[in-house]
Simulated scan of single mutants.
Amino acid sequence: MSVNKEIKRVTTTSIRAMKAAGEKIAMLTGYDNSIAKALDAGGIDIILVGDSAANVFAGYETTLPITLDEMIYHAAAVVRGTKHALVLVDLPFGSYQGSVNDAYLAAVRVMKESGAQALKLEGGLEIIANIKKIVDAGIPVCGHLGLTPQSINKFGTFGVRAKEEAEAEKLKADALALQEAGCFALVLEKIPASLAAEVTAFLDIPVIGIGAGNACDGQVLVVNDMLGLTEGFKPKFLRQYLNLYTQITDAVSQYVHDVKDKSFPNENEQY
């Protein structure tokens, strides 16, 4: 009689062990139950419930409008669809940049109401006290430096960050501060590959890149972009593995045709 092998959940400890062993970490975003199940079945290590849901799900130009309640809704749906992947959730803009206590309360809400395993916060030294409070409460935190989309109005562009020496030095100082504050991992977005390689080498915690080169300990992409569901968005760092937009529109067109010419449903598709 066969015995079902127990599926073990990826943890922050196993993610750090992957860096130590030289095993690359695979992360994709996910926002709903159906996609979460597919990502989990595909063996993804981490599902990031990103505030990019504001862009790909709600159609906003930036990540700023999404609320804490909406992030909890998406995160809970993803958690219910997973057995293997570590579920990492973005704290949305405005929920953690203020007082230490406000950041702590937002973090606790997400963990209690979604069932996720960890949180991601954008920023460095400016929010170190807030991160320490969350980590001290027993909540794992992943940092995020480089292009931080919640600060898009400050940057004014989605271009590559830390190309100049001063910003690169600040990023390195921020990365060390985040590690010392207890972050279990760090996301680096859209920075020079050489800088990402340097940061990855001097940090003990895993570094996961998006548009940050191949030397990072892992990679993350927005799942809608990777699957070709986001029409017309093809930045240099994106590898598109499918073209779902075209496949879906073709399928819908065929369905419309079949309904209008009365070939659907046929005799085998009715009671």
Rank of each mutant, 00 (worst) to 15 (best):
D258Q: 11
E269D: 10
L88V: 07
T82E: 05
S114T: 01
Y73T: 10
V79L: 10
Y241R: 09
G59W: 04
A17W: 07
Y31M: 04
V78R: 04
S2V: 11
D90A: 06
V160M: 13
K24R: 15
A76D: 13
L244Q: 09
I208Q: 01
N55C: 13
V252G: 10
V108Y: 02
N268Q: 13
A212P: 00
F158T: 13
A175N: 02
A54G: 15
Y245R: 11
V160D: 00
T157K: 14
V87Q: 03
T62A: 08
L188Q: 01
K112D: 11
L221Y: 05
G213E: 03
L91M: 15
Y255A: 13
G115M: 07
A103Q: 01
S95N: 06
T249N: 11
A162I: 01
T13V: 14
K234Y: 10
K190D: 07
P92R: 10
N224D: 14
K236Q: 14
E231A: 15
Y255L: 14
Q240V: 15
G156P: 05
T11F: 04
A181H: 01
G138T: 05
P206V: 05
I210Y: 02
G22C: 08
K24G: 08
R109K: 15
F202M: 11
E164P: 00
T29P: 01
E189R: 08
K170M: 13
I25V: 12
G156V: 05
V89Y: 00
H257N: 12
E267K: 15
Y104E: 09
A166T: 12
H74E: 04
G218I: 01
N224E: 13
P206M: 07
S52A: 12
Q150D: 05
D250L: 13
L227C: 13
N130V: 05
S34I: 12
E164M: 11
S151Q: 10
A251N: 07
G124N: 03
Y104C: 05
G59R: 07
L145Y: 01
Y73G: 07
M71A: 09
A173C: 10
T157H: 15
L48C: 10
N243V: 08
T67D: 06
Y73N: 12
T67Q: 10
A36P: 00
H74T: 09
I35M: 15
A106E: 00
A21T: 06
F233Q: 03
L64V: 15
A193W: 08
V256K: 15
C183Y: 00
E169P: 01
E269P: 03
I46F: 07
F93W: 09
C142Q: 08
K19N: 04
Q97D: 05
Q150F: 03
P92W: 07
E169H: 08
A41G: 10
Y60L: 09
K112C: 05
D261A: 02
P235Q: 05
K236T: 10
I46R: 00
A173H: 12
T29Y: 00
L186I: 09
K19Q: 06
A137W: 06
Y96E: 02
